[in-house]
Amino acid sequence: MGGARQWRGARLTNFPRRGRPAPRPIGILGGTFDPVHVGHLRAAIELKSALDLAEVRLIPARLPPHRPQPRAGAEHRLAMLQRAVRGVAGLRVDARELSRAGPSYTVDTLGELRQELGQRPICLLLGADAFAGLTGWHRWQALFELAHLVVMQRPLSAGQAAPPLPAKLAQAIGGRLADSARALRGSCAGVVWRQALPPLDISATRVRALLGAGESARFLVADSCLRYIRHHRLYID
């Protein structure tokens, strides 16, 4: 998420202020969305409801630093994402990273949002695998100063244990783990919350494989996106 504006720090504030209700947090869900599928959308809707978020902003990356470059161009991924969320209350597309030069560093995007939103709570929504690899992110420790981190967790199979976190990350989140999702409204940043989500085993890799093989991806991708994919002949090997 390369940065046009320089973030200069945010003062953490406790909420609510006297006589004012605690502001509802804004959720941020980044990714390549190559293509966007119902797993992305369902997770956003589930988190918005479970955490009482004011909205979830889906932010497509132009140049993801930690994964292969997207198959579809930025304009196609943005068009599919806009079609997928059309008419869905509380989901919003934010295209700021597509207009920025350089790698799409999350810390730069959160710095911009913090300047725009002031002391409103921001929740960075992360999958468990992405969270486990957080120490490889650009200026990863600054993320805690800019937003809360919400880790999406799928149920484990019987007898399965969650893999341990890297020691540096486990040390960094010590004292930040919340006992309740209500803590996300108690300050503007700095809390880590693990949110369980229903199992939904869908990936963009699988969707691309189905499309490349000429098989149906119906009900994995919104119909409006499938029409767009067919029209522009995307993901055809």
Rank of each mutant, 00 (worst) to 15 (best):
P65L: 00
D223Q: 15
L91S: 01
L143A: 04
R227G: 10
L53G: 05
A222C: 03
L58W: 11
S224D: 14
L149F: 05
P16A: 09
R86H: 13
A44T: 10
G2L: 14
G19W: 04
T205E: 10
G118F: 09
V150L: 03
L146A: 12
A95I: 02
A4H: 15
L91P: 12
D129H: 03
L98Q: 12
G30M: 06
R83H: 04
A61I: 02
P64W: 02
R17P: 04
V151Y: 04
R230K: 12
A74G: 09
L210T: 02
K168M: 13
G190I: 01
E46L: 10
S216H: 04
E112K: 08
V107H: 04
A101L: 15
L211S: 11
A79E: 00
R83S: 01
D34E: 07
M152R: 05
R83Q: 03
R96Y: 00
A54Q: 15
L220T: 10
L78C: 02
A142V: 09
H37F: 10
I45Y: 14
P121S: 08
A161M: 00
V207L: 04
L211W: 07
Q69S: 14
L110M: 06
L156E: 09
D237M: 01
V88C: 12
V107C: 02
R92A: 12
D94P: 03
S216I: 01
T13W: 10
L184D: 02
A44K: 09
P103A: 14
I26Y: 12
P21R: 07
G186E: 12
R18A: 05
E55P: 08
P23C: 07
Q82F: 01
T13G: 06
R17Y: 09
F131H: 03
R227S: 11
L234K: 07
D129G: 03
G3S: 13
G186S: 10
M1V: 15
R227I: 08
H232R: 08
Q119H: 15
L47M: 13
A204K: 00
L177A: 00
V192K: 07
M80N: 07
R86L: 13
